[in-house]
Write a protein that binds this DNA or RNA. Sequence first.
DNA 1: GATGAATGAGGGTTCATTCAT
DNA 2: GATGAATGAACCCTCATTCAT
Lengths: 204, 204, 204, 204
Amino acid sequence: MNTSDQGTGGTPAPKRKDARRNQRTLLEAAAAAFVDAGVEAPVRDIAARAGVGMGTIYRHFPTRADLIIAVYRHQVDACAEAGPALLASSPTPYAALEEWIGLFTDFLVTKHGLAAVLQPDHPQFETLHASFLDRLVPVCDQLLDAAADHGEIRPGYAGIELMRGVGNLCIGAGTDPRYDARRMVALLVAGLRRPAGNSAPAGR
Amino acid sequence: MNTSDQGTGGTPAPKRKDARRNQRTLLEAAAAAFVDAGVEAPVRDIAARAGVGMGTIYRHFPTRADLIIAVYRHQVDACAEAGPALLASSPTPYAALEEWIGLFTDFLVTKHGLAAVLQPDHPQFETLHASFLDRLVPVCDQLLDAAADHGEIRPGYAGIELMRGVGNLCIGAGTDPRYDARRMVALLVAGLRRPAGNSAPAGR
Amino acid sequence: MNTSDQGTGGTPAPKRKDARRNQRTLLEAAAAAFVDAGVEAPVRDIAARAGVGMGTIYRHFPTRADLIIAVYRHQVDACAEAGPALLASSPTPYAALEEWIGLFTDFLVTKHGLAAVLQPDHPQFETLHASFLDRLVPVCDQLLDAAADHGEIRPGYAGIELMRGVGNLCIGAGTDPRYDARRMVALLVAGLRRPAGNSAPAGR
Amino acid sequence: MNTSDQGTGGTPAPKRKDARRNQRTLLEAAAAAFVDAGVEAPVRDIAARAGVGMGTIYRHFPTRADLIIAVYRHQVDACAEAGPALLASSPTPYAALEEWIGLFTDFLVTKHGLAAVLQPDHPQFETLHASFLDRLVPVCDQLLDAAADHGEIRPGYAGIELMRGVGNLCIGAGTDPRYDARRMVALLVAGLRRPAGNSAPAGR
DNA sequence: GATGAATGAGGGTTCATTCAT
DNA sequence: GATGAATGAACCCTCATTCAT
């Protein structure tokens, strides 16, 4: 596994040292701007925070999706890697699933505005959508399968839908004190549990 | 008691026949525009669809919130009224809850873009938020209470959070065939069920 | 002198009694609106104050100039009529002039925004300009001539320019406590006085 | 000490050569537009005249007040600087005052539409008002004081009111051949003269 | 490479004026 | 005649994106 940033896709790391430093500055500035103004923060603002010109941003990240992906890259990676680890260390697969979904939820909830990005509204965001989910969905699938095999949850649920569901539940988290995204996510995951006896959720 | 639009409040029906017809046209155009472009669809576009000038929209609906509320008014009313009816006709309160949430979900899923509106991001949307939720939350509370009293679900969940959760799950429904909002909503509602024995969802 | 409003021009008085009442209401509403928002007050506002439709205003006063003229008609008339009276009753023609200019100034200063109307900026306002000045300029000329004949002021100043000057000095009166239009008008009129010996104002 | 525009404050000169040229073009276009359409000339028109996009105007002059100030900056400065010079070179302070007011009048008369700006109507124009008057009023005060000390004029008149008065007299100059603003200004200044014997202007 | 100036589409809002009812 | 609904031109302002320096 080489160190150059080629894994799942994304912008290749630039050669020159100063350019690399520049890119890091940029990502930090973007992350900060995203926190304050959402992932749709004006390019000019991000550039200003980073102390660079707007052109520099466009050079490094031709589309906004590229920038967003890069900003959250590391955290997505960390989350992906946590999956197998949790499966190995948790008492049961379901517990691992709960834990892992919790990690993902924390990630989304903390990063204000990110969740909204997983919406396939804007055409440009397909890239983005794919980039995030391609990395995490297999992990989620693995956890779901393990829990299902273990008889803890009803089978037939795909990682992709669970991820999208959790993502959606996290939209707007933190803006309304009466809405606690984590509680709702917990409810969703609880819904997966094999019911005591009857009354399986229909799903239509 | 005349049939004109006096129910719960909102924009009073205009006097003149043509204006009334116009208002209806407007609402239909807006609904269509919302489906295609979300509730932030440009005023100009909505006016063009309706074949009227922009001023006409501003006359009938001074703020965007007024328009949105008016567009969904009837459906929200219908949904609110369905609650008690279902409670009376269903075998158990939980069944009524399931059914009712299904209605709400259908409403949101069909009206693409509406769900995004329940986000308390934009200040203007407080009005809107209130208008929708004030009407439906009490109904949901009633159903939740009944089901809890009946021992079918765990107590302690508020209508507001469930509504928000369901609303969120419906965001972007229909844009991705792999994501079925109704399935996820069903899962969420299933999560409310009193667990057979152990392992209550934590909720943090 | 007959009572029907035909003197200097303007809208002929309508025949029916209710229409005449309507017109009075309109003028009062317009006057009030002009005080609050200047002579450019939105037609809709004036109509609303008068409790009539906008169409009614357009019927009675096809152009804004017509309305403005009508609103100030009586006061302009009164001012015009005061000229000869003052000339007859004042100790000297100059005193009459001072007094009369004072009346005119009071009229303009009180009627916020009117002064700005005497500006020949907007083409439409020629009508207006003429209407006001045609009535008052001869009076002013008469007073100037009398004072000049009496040796109290330097000859060669026309009523039209003095009126315009006074009108201009009244623009914006009342918006800035440091600017007292009446003081400046008094200065202007004082400037007309035949100088003791030397240094006649050049005028370039 | 470089020549770039750092004097009294205002918009800093941009770094790039093309931007600087652009700014000049803009100022000329704005000046021309102001002459034709007043200081409220549409941003689009000014931009079109200058052959630039509207954004360019907003970049250089974020508010309309900034633009207006910049347009008249140099001339206001020149006028301000002329005051002390005239005082030094003129035979008497009153002569200097006459001369200086003449300069100010020429400035206003030539720049049709500027005078209207000194009206404190629109809130935004406070900035503007201040910017112009803060520069010139002290000069005028100095001249008034000198003339008063010299016994040439009656004391008690403030620069601010004289400036406003002159400004007002210049409104609409050049649109009506029968109105010569310079003549009226001369009259106003003549009114300041200590009267031969009696009859001081009242001022109310 | 980096910069940030310039562009201009895009969206909101107001209000004089016309004209169906 | 009176009404007030509808029209749409005219403005304002923002910001993604390009490209000269």
